[in-house]
Simulated assay, not measured.
Amino acid sequence: MFDLWRVGFIRKPLAHVLRPEGLDVANVVWLPESPRDFQFVADPFGIERGGVLTVFVEAFDYRVRRGEIHYFQYNQADVLIAKGVALAEPFHLSFPSLIEEGGELYMLPEGYKSGALTLYRCVRFPDHWEPVQTLLDVPAIDAAVTHFGGRWWMFHALPGPEDRAMRELHVAWADSLMGPWTPHTANPVRSGLADCRPGGTPFEQYGVLYLPVQDCAEGYGRRIRLLRLDVLEPDHFEATEVRRFEPEGVLEGYADGLHTLSGLGNVTFIDVKSLNQSPSEGLIRTQYKLRRLFRMNGPRKEAA
């Protein structure tokens, strides 16, 4: 079985999900379906500039098991006008969260296989980004950063055995986006498969900070839970779940998961999942194993 994701956006601020009616699924604009049953796009984040909405996503191909950051651009009539590659590295990339600070635009993608968490600065929008700072010397997963209460805060997961990346929430704080970043004294501040892995953009409403997290108790990215952060200090953390967002009824054929709820400005982004049985699945897995074996056992240069 393959997880296949589909990305959509809603032209409303992220905080609209707090209204009694919740997420406005009736007005989602969906990005095109992936052209192959072994590819998908997920983890949407985006920004609107000059009347053009740019959606950044993880673009994943099961044949190589490595993600890149791609972009899709829409005009004000929600017509797709451009797409391309925004950022690619030798290692897997996903979760391209965006940060605006000091007149600059930054991207903080997950690249945990690099062994660190690296911040990228936009040199030419939307397809030229350069690494500017290592924020953490640990392979943080799905790191979400926000400025709240006079400090910068980061929410992330860490890899490890027994699904650690889905069952522990870690926090770090800093006085500057560039750091240094200090781990929370109570890490992991929250444990359990139901409400720990970050799932999008932290957002503030009426002086209160909210954090979307993934519910992985029934499987990876099953639904989004929204936490209200009641206490957020370097040595104290308390949170309360205030809402859940289910994938059922959002998009026909994609009722198996919903694991991103993000937003910037007047746009909200989501993704939904379909568990897909592909007739080419066996061949794709075999090809991937052969490529990996060749890389491990390929020709090596002899020492001089």
Rank of each mutant, 00 (worst) to 15 (best):
E58R: 00
P32I: 06
Y210M: 10
V41C: 05
G46T: 09
E110M: 01
G263W: 05
V7I: 14
G265R: 10
N187D: 11
R300G: 02
E281T: 08
F45S: 11
R121S: 03
D137G: 12
D271N: 11
D43G: 01
R190Y: 03
R6I: 04
H128Q: 14
A165T: 08
S278L: 13
A194M: 13
P161W: 05
L275S: 15
V57R: 00
A26Q: 14
D61E: 12
W129E: 03
S94W: 00
G200N: 04
D175C: 01
G149N: 11
V171M: 01
P198R: 08
F269I: 06
Y71C: 03
V231F: 11
H70M: 01
Y120L: 04
F91N: 06
L105R: 12
A303T: 12
L105I: 14
P279I: 12
S262T: 07
V85E: 03
V41L: 12
A194T: 13
D3Y: 09
E68L: 00
P109N: 00
D163C: 12
H128Y: 05
V55M: 10
L275F: 12
E302N: 06
L251W: 02
P13C: 07
V17P: 12
E204Y: 02
L158Y: 03
E58N: 00
A143L: 07
D163S: 13
